[in-house]
């Protein structure tokens, strides 16, 4: 249990058709990452509401990671742009609540990106630990 406590708690928003299968693949291939990573899958990252992210911080999450589809998104060709707008808006809200905007991150993740996902989690955890200290 000690591990869960010491490693930062990360909430990941993934997408049903692309990034969530990528995260599943990390599991299928038994590539380990921190067990304090929790995933919520949505149809498209452009549908994430800033209030959800803020709720996650209020509930004690240390960081929020958006595993977006980038240009691969099958819904909207401007998906990446809108997802980015959401992050910018959320970061403004975070500043108001004295939460470091570095606690939110976005990256494009493909449906077979098992290693990149795990790398993102490791890097993000490191950043979050540095923010704590």
């Amino acid at each position: 249990m000690s591990d869960t406590k010491s490693s930062p708690r990360i909430l990941v928003f993934s997408t049903d058709t692309i990034s969530d299968p990528g995260i599943d693949q990390a599991g299928q291939r038994k590539i380990h990452y921190s067990p304090s990573v929790y995933v919520i899958s949505l149809p498209c990252s452009s549908g994430i509401k800033p209030r959800w992210i803020m709720h996650a911080f209020e509930q004690g999450f240390d960081g929020v990671f958006i595993a977006a589809d980038g240009i691969e998104c099958s819904y909207n060709h401007k998906c990446a742009e809108y997802t980015n707008n959401i992050i910018v808006e959320t970061q403004q809200m975070m500043k108001d609540k004295n939460i470091n905007p570095k606690r939110i991150r976005m990256a494009a993740l493909c449906s077979v990106c098992a290693e990149p996902f795990v790398n993102h989690m490791e890097n993000f955890s490191r950043i979050l630990v540095e923010l704590e200290n």
Partner: peptide, 12 residues
């Protein structure tokens, strides 16, 4: 709880 829990965290 398989692809995103028991498998990736089989080490812990």
């Amino acid at each position: 709880i398989r692809e995103q829990c028991s498998w990736p965290h089989s080490d812990k």
